[in-house]
Nucleic acid binder design. Structure first.
Lengths: 167, 167
DNA sequence: TCCATTTTTGCAATACTATAACATCGCAAA
DNA sequence: TTTGCGATGTTATAGTATTGCAAAAATGGA
């Protein structure tokens, strides 16, 4: 279920509320199917991450949660929620940014592949068998058994390219 | 100039001294050509990184340098040397490990592509046009202009696979 | 050679990211 | 009720990286 079918990069003025409700709904479904508990904390972390398509740092999440009155939160709370969400394929970590972003293909078995705009910060998740195959081909040629891959491509997104394209 | 032509993963008992001398020699050459200064500090950091094919953390480098008698070193010294070495394509950072490894194709324009063994820690650099092309194809389909890519594949290397293969 | 400029290094402090260790709570099955 | 287990709270600390400023060293002319 792709919550935003019109291409990897969300149009700047797309209906983001739709992304959010879609993401939360499929999180509910997936957790129910797996008998995993999408608790209030985990739900809040997921919502904060889904506020936009820009990856958000753990301490930003912490700040956002602490801002919402209630008793302030400690780092392990956030990291534990992130661990849970990652384990169930609901969010991805962008290693090169040390930040977290909502998964656009939850429930589907896939590796994280991202196009990340250096200008606006948006991270677009792509799923491409061709990349997978090319990697798998090289790996098996080297006698290497793949368990996990990280693909992070930085550059300029279609919205930012016109402005900063010439450099 | 590939210092170790027999495949991406170095044979466990390859002549590593050869890797080191090759790497240092090409670092010298490249820096001379670019009129960049391969100072004593930078050279030492590069040597420490090349002690083996396992990526090493900045603070491990720091410890190694401080161990060599002399006045102890502060973190910025290490990070500055790493910045220099990365800028000139002599080392790569493995984001998912927060660690640094010597580049096996210095001077050649290429993106960092790594197979990383979860058992022994060895990181093998590969250069594959097929992967590049597959990524570039997806990027241009999305209207995205690539400036840099990170590819990190974790799994088991040919040496470790027999022992831990069945899991 | 001497000076001016630029690059590199030293150094102290601090920011940012992540985990360890242990106590407690709440729910649900026995 | 008791027991077991997953989730949360809490404090402290480990690990990674940067900022800002001063001193020193190298470089390229005059």
């Amino acid at each position: 279920m792709d919550t935003n079918p019109q291409g990897p990069f969300a149009d700047p003025d797309h209906d983001h509320a739709h992304c959010v409700t879609g993401a939360m709904a499929s999180a509910e479904t997936i957790c129910r199917m797996r008998r995993a508990r999408l608790t209030e904390q985990r739900r809040r972390v997921l919502e904060i991450i889904w506020e936009n398509h820009v990856p958000v740092g753990a301490y930003e999440i912490l700040a956002a949660m602490s801002a919402e009155d209630r008793p302030p939160i400690a780092p392990p709370t956030v990291y534990r929620a992130l661990d849970f969400l990652q384990a169930h394929g609901l969010v991805h970590k962008i290693e090169s940014l040390k930040a977290y972003v909502g998964c656009r293909h939850p429930g589907q078995d896939h590796v994280g592949q991202f196009l990340i705009c250096e200008e606006c910060g948006n991270a677009a998740e792509i799923v491409d068998q061709g990349i997978d195959r090319a990697i798998e081909k090289q790996a098996s040629a080297a006698g290497f058994q793949v368990s996990e891959t990280t693909i992070e491509v930085r550059g300029l997104c279609p919205s930012c390219l016109p402005e900063r394209g010439a450099r």
